[in-house]
Amino acid sequence: MRIGELSRETGVAIPTIKYYVREGLLPAGRLTSPNQASYDDGHVRRLRLIRGLIDVGELSVSTVREVLAAVDSPEESVHEVLGAAQHAITPRPAVTPEGVERARQAVAELIRRRGWRVGLDHPAFEKTAVALATFRGIGHGEFEEVLDDYAEACERVAAADLAWAGRNAEVDGLVESVVVGTVLGDAVLTAMRRLAHVEASARSFEDAAAEGAGGR
C-alpha cells in the first residue's frame, strides 16, 4: 500500500507518519521508485502500536522510542526487556520531599517483607518513596498501613498481566505483549480503580446512609 492508504487505514495523518519514520519509531517503506514507497500490514500494526502508546499510554515520542527499542531487542530476555521498558516509562520524581529517606526505608522493608526480587535502583522504588513521604508531609502518614494490601493487589495484577502476555508463544510477540501490557495496562488499571472507587463509596456511604434512614 502507498502512504495515503496507510494513513486512511490507521487514521494517522501523512505528515505524522513521515515524522515517525524520521524519528525511528516506524520503519521506512520499501522504495518502489525514487519518490514512492510501499507499506504493508506490519507498518499498520506498528503505527497502531505507536498511537496506542502515545494516545492511551500518554507517553512522549522520546519515551516511545525507548520502549520500542526494548521491544526490538531480540538478544535480550523477556525479563530484561520488561525492565528496560519499565525504566523508560517510569519518570524520576521531579522533587525530593522532606522525610524521603524514612519513606525509602519503609519501601525497602516492604520489598524485603514480600520477598520481591527487585533492586532499590528501580525508578518505581523512588517514585513510591516520594509518594509516601508526601503523604506524611501533608499529615496522612497512616497511609503506610495499607501498603501490604496494595502490594497484594499488585501481585495479583502483575500475575494476570504476565499470564495474558504468555498466551503468545512467539518470543517477539511475547516481548511486545509484556511491554504493551505494562503501558496500556497502567491506563486500564487507573481507570478501573476509579470505577471501583465509585462502587466502594456507594457500598460504604450510600448503603450505610440508607440503612440509617430506614432505622429512624
Score class of each variant (00 low, 15 high):
residue 104 R to V: 00
residue 104 R to I: 06
residue 106 A to G: 15
residue 84 A to F: 10
residue 66 E to T: 09
residue 86 Q to V: 15
residue 76 E to C: 14
residue 88 A to V: 06
residue 98 E to Q: 04
residue 81 V to I: 11
residue 108 A to V: 08
residue 74 P to K: 11
residue 110 L to M: 09
residue 70 A to N: 01
residue 71 V to Q: 10
residue 74 P to D: 06
residue 56 V to I: 01
residue 77 S to D: 05
residue 82 L to M: 12
residue 74 P to W: 07
residue 73 S to M: 13
residue 70 A to E: 05
residue 115 G to R: 12
residue 62 S to F: 04
residue 104 R to G: 01
residue 120 L to Y: 00
residue 89 I to K: 03
residue 103 A to P: 08
residue 63 T to K: 02
residue 79 H to S: 08
residue 62 S to M: 08
residue 67 V to P: 04
residue 93 P to W: 09
residue 103 A to C: 08
residue 65 R to D: 05
residue 112 R to M: 11
residue 112 R to I: 05
residue 120 L to R: 02
residue 60 S to C: 05
residue 75 E to C: 09
residue 107 V to Q: 11
residue 56 V to W: 01
residue 76 E to L: 15
residue 96 T to I: 15
residue 103 A to N: 04
residue 61 V to M: 02
residue 92 R to V: 13
residue 71 V to W: 07
residue 59 L to G: 03
residue 112 R to V: 04
residue 61 V to D: 02
residue 72 D to I: 10
residue 115 G to D: 09
residue 88 A to K: 11
residue 91 P to T: 09
residue 55 D to N: 08
residue 81 V to W: 09
residue 102 R to M: 13
residue 109 E to K: 14
residue 117 R to Y: 14
residue 84 A to G: 13
residue 61 V to G: 01
residue 92 R to A: 13
residue 103 A to S: 06
residue 105 Q to C: 12
residue 71 V to C: 07
residue 101 E to N: 08
residue 100 V to Q: 07
residue 56 V to G: 02
residue 110 L to D: 03
residue 117 R to E: 12
residue 86 Q to A: 09
residue 79 H to Y: 13
residue 60 S to T: 12
residue 78 V to K: 07
residue 97 P to L: 01
residue 78 V to S: 11
residue 65 R to T: 12
residue 62 S to I: 14
residue 102 R to P: 13
residue 95 V to M: 15
residue 90 T to V: 11
residue 79 H to L: 12
residue 112 R to L: 12
residue 84 A to R: 13
residue 108 A to E: 09
residue 87 H to T: 10
residue 94 A to W: 11
residue 109 E to A: 05
residue 95 V to P: 12
residue 89 I to F: 03
residue 61 V to Q: 01
residue 60 S to F: 05
residue 110 L to S: 00
residue 85 A to V: 10
residue 66 E to P: 08
residue 94 A to M: 11
residue 70 A to T: 04
residue 120 L to D: 03
residue 120 L to C: 05
residue 103 A to G: 07
residue 115 G to L: 13
residue 99 G to Q: 06
residue 96 T to C: 11
residue 57 G to F: 03
residue 119 G to A: 05
residue 67 V to K: 06
residue 84 A to P: 14
